[in-house]
Simulated scan of single mutants.
Amino acid sequence: TAVLYDFYTEWCKVYSHVIRSLKDIEPDLLVFYNYPKQIRASIYSTNMIESFNNVIKRKAKPKAEFPTEQSLDAFIGIQAMSYNDRYFNRIHKGFGQVQDTLESYFD
């Protein structure tokens, strides 16, 4: 956090509004540091989200348009369930090494 405070000090005069906003969300901003080092990259990365978004785009493209918002919601819901089923047993990088530690968080 020392680096973050150095950043605040250096840029607060030029970007006071941004620094204020960062300070407001600071408790949540670096929360991934509370988790084991082996899984931090997976937590702060958006790779899994981007992968899922690409699946949605690829499968929605042939449909062109949806008649109602509910039909779009249903389509995305079905795609999410299918994606979850496909990757349910997959252990993401680093999570297998710290499974016991993570389980202890929820005891």
Rank of each mutant, 00 (worst) to 15 (best):
F75M: 09
V55T: 10
T9E: 05
I25V: 15
Y83T: 05
I43K: 02
T1L: 02
R86G: 03
F52S: 01
K61H: 15
V98T: 13
K57I: 06
Y105D: 12
L4K: 08
A74K: 15
G77Q: 15
F32D: 04
W11T: 00
S71N: 08
D28I: 07
G77S: 13
Y8L: 01
T9S: 02
G77T: 12
E50M: 03
I78L: 11
Y83V: 04
S16K: 03
I39A: 00
S51E: 12
Y15S: 00
W11G: 00
A2Q: 12
K61F: 12
L22W: 14
E103R: 15
K23T: 12
V14H: 11
N84E: 05
W11N: 03
N89A: 06
N34M: 13
G94S: 08
F66I: 10
D28K: 10
E103G: 03
F66D: 11
N84M: 07
P67E: 07
G96L: 08
V18P: 02
Y44H: 08
L22D: 02
V3N: 04
S21Y: 06
F32I: 03
I39E: 00
Q99V: 04
K37F: 14
K93A: 01
Q99S: 11
T68A: 08
Y87V: 05
K13T: 12
V55C: 06
Q38P: 11
Y44S: 00
L72R: 12
F95I: 09
K59M: 05
Q70K: 12
N84S: 14
R58D: 09
T1M: 11
N47R: 06
F7A: 11
I43E: 03
K59W: 10
Q38G: 01
T68Q: 10
F7P: 11
S45P: 09
D107K: 14
D100V: 10
R86T: 15
E65V: 08
K57M: 05
D73M: 13
Y83M: 03
Y44V: 00
A64R: 14
N34H: 11
E10S: 03
M48N: 12
N53T: 06
I76P: 13
T46D: 10
I25G: 09
E69N: 14
A2K: 10
P62E: 01
A74G: 04
F32L: 04
F95N: 02
E65R: 14
I43C: 02
V98G: 07
A41H: 14
Q70Y: 09
I43Q: 02
K61A: 10
Y15G: 01
